[in-house]
């Protein structure tokens, strides 16, 4: 049940061509890193997969279902199986950690009861288990904005866990964090990938992180796929193709 991205193109209303005919297939259980300069189309690609951004043309097919053709109702059913975590964490800052985690379940619970703020006890238990898994169970009643950046991103992961996702989209999940925290966050994502078999598409800035975690790399430049292969295949020539002639390699 692979994820098939077929000639995906996105042109914004102002004429910017963010993606141009990008095609690839991701098999179940892969950890795909998406790399490229800022503005290369990494975020747009991830958001076109769950249609937070409507692609201009092309198709995304997952589990044999054409996401790009789904009705709003079908789309919500699909989205609830696709977890997503963000560079800015995107938590509701004034809500508690527990509430933030529970919102990951909104696609499954009774919509009318959820509007009244009610979640069944079984869902609250599920949320506590998710928080335990990211080591934050004791902070469940804190307001989200009282947490440090690393803790907030772990709440973001717990929220995604609530969806019991089969696919995880991670948009620069560690770019807003201290480099030393990057590994702790990526290890949670890696664990999801290895233990639970969740397919991961993750955009990353640092090549050493790519080498350490990814099983496959897709390189984007100006909205065009310029590389698709294993991390160890990125040599100096490939590196310059992705990042431009003036780029220098730092670290790994």
């Amino acid at each position: 049940m692979p994820l098939i991205v077929d000639r995906l193109t996105k042109i914004y209303p102002d004429g910017t061509r963010a993606l141009h005919e990008v095609s690839f297939t991701v098999e179940d259980g892969e950890f795909v890193a998406i790399i490229g300069l800022s503005g290369a189309g990494k975020s747009t690609l991830l958001r076109c997969i769950n249609r937070l951004i409507e692609p201009t043309s092309g198709r995304v097919i997952w589990n044999g279902i054409d996401i790009t053709a789904a009705s709003p109702r079908e789309l919500r059913k699909i989205r609830r199986q696709i977890g997503m975590i963000f560079q800015q964490f995107n938590l509701v800052k004034r809500a508690t950690v527990l509430t933030n985690v529970l919102t990951g379940r909104l696609g499954y619970v009774n919509p009318w009861l959820s509007l009244l703020g009610y979640f069944p006890p079984s869902e609250v238990q599920r949320a506590m288990r998710a928080l335990e898994r990211v080591g934050l169970a004791d902070l469940a009643d804190k307001r989200a904005d009282e947490l440090s950046g690393g803790q907030q991103q772990r709440v973001g992961i717990a929220r995604a866990l609530m969806q019991e996702p089969r696919l995880l989209l991670a948009d620069e999940p560690v770019a807003s964090l201290d480099p030393v925290l990057a590994h702790s966050i990526l290890r949670y994502i890696e664990e999801l990938n290895r233990k639970d078999g969740v397919t991961v598409l993750c955009s990353l800035h640092f090549l050493d992180l790519v080498h350490r975690y990814a099983t496959r790399v897709i390189g984007l430049k100006d909205g065009i796929k310029v590389f698709d292969g294993r991390p160890d295949e990125i040599d100096d020539r490939r590196f310059k193709e992705i990042y431009g002639q003036e780029a220098e390699r730092i670290g790994g």
């Binding site: 699909i78 997503m84 800015q88 995107n90 919102t103 909104l106 696609g107 919509p111």
Partner: peptide, 13 residues
């Protein structure tokens, strides 16, 4: 807009 985007992505209506 971040939380709006995040909750839309979870399949919330």
């Amino acid at each position: 807009p971040g939380p709006v985007e995040a909750l839309t992505a979870t399949g919330a209506n």
